[in-house]
Write a protein that binds this DNA or RNA. Structure first.
Lengths: 217, 217
DNA sequence: AGCAAAATTGGCAGAGTGCCAATAGGGCAC
DNA sequence: GTGCCCTATTGGCACTCTGCCAATTTTGCT
């Protein structure tokens, strides 16, 4: 009396199914570009019907944005940190070290998150990435603040942001192009940061309005 | 007696039509993302049939790659330069100035070229952007070489590449976020470069293999 | 066991892409 | 000036992908 007709599919709880789809989508979107991944691909690999994706995320694009948001939760920029004990140099050194540690563990994910893609300014994507970087900058500034008297001026934020760019590029030289060792990246990041804060920042703040002209050397 | 039935469309020379389509495609791909631009959009704005796009470029993606190639011909990284007269500092200062000048003129295009996009490593796009940046690094190294004894070591290339990242981020602070003036970016770039070459690079080269371990501080 | 809520499926409609055969400019030979 | 031929250009067909929704199935609860 075939009591159980052997269910053809399993019914999962809302959040669980959602998470499962997100995992697959994250993998595929990390491997290939947005256009090169179809919702059918995601559905097939997740073992569900394509319509279910739309039930949970509405649209392919929204699913994509969800993936991006999850991905940039990982610090895409240098060195957050907590309580500073010791001099600025020590604090920075430890922060950089912790950050490189994280990078080494999540190499693939991080590379996918910072991998520059095509052109065409996608304002939403840009906003998400920008927010993530800005938060990283905030954390770093908060950590440094006790050491430098200056509050979070525009110049400080900009310099730290520039440092983020340097840190990303340098990390790529380690993880992707293999031209630097981890130790070298560490040295590069620590010394650069100290130089930027102690030497470059004061100079930048010292540039007065007359030098802010748009033309000429 | 209606001699000329008034041609319904004009027949252009191969290269000319091709260029015309590229101009439109470049504009649209710079404004919106790849997925948000349809071949119909491009064809309509170019005033041609959609099929013609495929005749010239084969595929939407190939057309896109063509646009990207053209776009990154513009130096996406700092400061090429020619013959150095004067000290390193003067050469760098002038180079940075010339570069900022170019940025100011081509603000929109440059922003489109470096604008961070989505995830999903698109290896072809990545290769194109990477080549462009690498060439910029080469030019910069060639300009600096007379001043530093060291040849183009891996460390030097990596440090200059890191500098490129810093320069891009700093320029965005000027052009996009408006937190720095042009003069401030100039100062930031010149001083940072000198610091990197004179102070940081030697330290990075001095990191011996024992420090190159993957773990630990 | 039966019911109801909700998770899941399957298929339909519209849009976008790739392709190719047919058409029509326009330069050139005569 | 006229006609011919080359090829730039068009228009439409087939296929894939996305968004949507009604129908179906599962499962917890009474």
């Amino acid at each position: 009396m075939a009591s159980n007709p052997a269910p053809r599919w399993q019914r999962l709880e809302h959040d669980e199914r959602r998470r499962q789809i997100l995992v697959v989508a994250r993998r595929l979107f990390s491997e290939r570009s947005y256009a090169a991944v179809s919702t059918s691909d995601i559905a097939r690999e997740a073992g569900v019907a394509r319509g279910l994706l739309h039930h949970y995320f509405g649209t392919k694009r929204e699913l994509y944005l969800e993936v991006v948001r999850a991905l940039v939760l990982m610090p895409s920029n240098p060195v957050p940190l907590q309580s500073g004990v010791g001099g600025l140099e020590v604090v920075i050194s430890e922060s950089v070290d912790r950050w490189l540690e994280m990078l080494g563990r999540n190499r693939g994910t991080w590379l996918a998150a910072v991998g520059a893609q095509g052109l065409g300014r996608d304002v939403e994507i840009e906003a998400i990435l920008d927010d993530a970087r800005e938060q990283a900058v905030n954390r770093l500034i908060a950590a440094v603040e006790p050491y430098g008297a200056a509050g979070a001026s525009d110049e400080l934020r900009a310099v730290v942001r520039a440092y983020s760019g340097l840190a990303e590029a340098a990390s790529l030289e380690w993880l992707h192009r293999d031209r630097l060792t981890r130790g070298q990246v560490h040295t590069l990041l620590v010394k650069s940061f100290l130089n930027l804060i102690r030497d470059v920042l004061p100079a930048v703040e010292g540039v007065d309005a007359r030098s802010a002209r748009t033309r000429t050397a």
